[in-house]
Write a protein that binds this DNA or RNA. Structure first.
Length: 277
DNA sequence: GTCCAGGGATTCA
DNA sequence: TGAATCCATGGA
């Protein structure tokens, strides 16, 4: 077992890994998380002075881990936006929450699965898919299945693994991506609007799932995903609990927070779910 | 038994 | 354009 420390005084590992943006990490009884970091199976836990990275064989290099957790980003501008709005200020308790730069395919697939679903079940489905269809990594660990592996799985199997009516959506999207290698790289190279139009063309992906995929998988930080939690929180905080449409909430958030919208959304989402907002 | 979950697709006015 | 309805599943 080898390990190293990445110094970071502004990182909240728990909030980052437990805020519904990534589903492949499992927390053990010691408070450490196991999962794939920058493509390598790793054990991570928070330390007073930063992030401790451990692995059985081979570790991702520091730059990759730092990049994966977006540790180089100066969050002071995000904090300033939240602090100057008294309605959001309680969410400053989540300081150190960062947006993970996760694998684009995994983000795309997981948020297709997320439709009308809950975080706990999404985690379970992630594990079912990985155990049953994923390729074995170094220590025998299964990774989240690639587009070809998901495309070759029968729709009936996907249903058995818990996808329910989303099975054909994931199956067809996996088939398209495996037949068009490079399409995800192309989306990454596009600006937000063009990238969104392309992601919306996949089956099972609407406005909300598209924004999640763009934010978590393609680092389009102007995305403002509006799910039921964001909808409720935004209505309560900014619209006197009036019934405002998801489209209007999304436009409101994007215009109000611009390139910070994605980060602010994460603080509002986790803040609402943890009772801070 | 009923409601809800990081919604989307389809139908119908 | 916009509202209503259906869709699998499991926990609360």
């Amino acid at each position: 077992m080898t390990s190293y420390l990445i110094s970071s005084k502004d990182f909240n590992l728990d909030a980052t890994l437990d805020s519904g943006q990534v589903f492949g990490f499992r927390k053990d009884s010691d408070g450490a998380y196991e999962g794939e970091v920058a493509g390598v199976w790793t054990r991570v836990h928070a330390d007073k002075s930063g992030l401790v990275v451990e692995g059985e064989e081979g570790l991702p290099d520091r730059e990759a881990v730092s990049r994966y957790f977006d540790l180089a980003r100066d969050l002071s501008s995000v904090y300033a936006v939240i602090a100057e709005d008294e309605r959001l200020r309680p969410a400053l308790a989540l300081k150190g929450l960062r947006l993970i730069r996760q694998d684009a395919w995994e983000a795309l697939a997981c948020f297709i699965i997320s439709a009308n679903n809950n975080v706990k079940r999404i985690r379970g489905i992630w594990k079912n898919l990985s155990d049953r269809l994923g390729e074995a990594g170094p220590a025998g660990r299964k990774r989240f299945p690639s587009p070809p592996r998901l495309a070759s799985a029968h729709e009936r199997l996907l249903r058995e693994l818990g996808l329910g009516y989303r099975a054909p959506f994931l199956s067809r999207t996996a088939l398209y991506v495996s037949k068009n290698p490079g399409c995800l790289d192309h989306i990454r190279a596009c600006g937000y609007e063009e990238a969104k139009a392309r992601v919306l063309a996949f089956p099972g992906i609407g406005e909300k799932v598209a924004d999640c995929a763009l934010l978590y998988g393609f680092q389009k930080y102007e995305a403002f995903p509006v799910d039921v939690w964001i909808l409720r929180a935004m209505r309560k905080l900014y619209f006197r609990n009036r019934s405002v449409s998801e489209d209007r909430i999304r436009a409101y958030g994007q215009k109000k927070w611009g390139v910070q919208a994605g980060y602010v959304q994460q603080y509002v989402f986790h803040g609402a779910r943890t009772g801070l907002l």
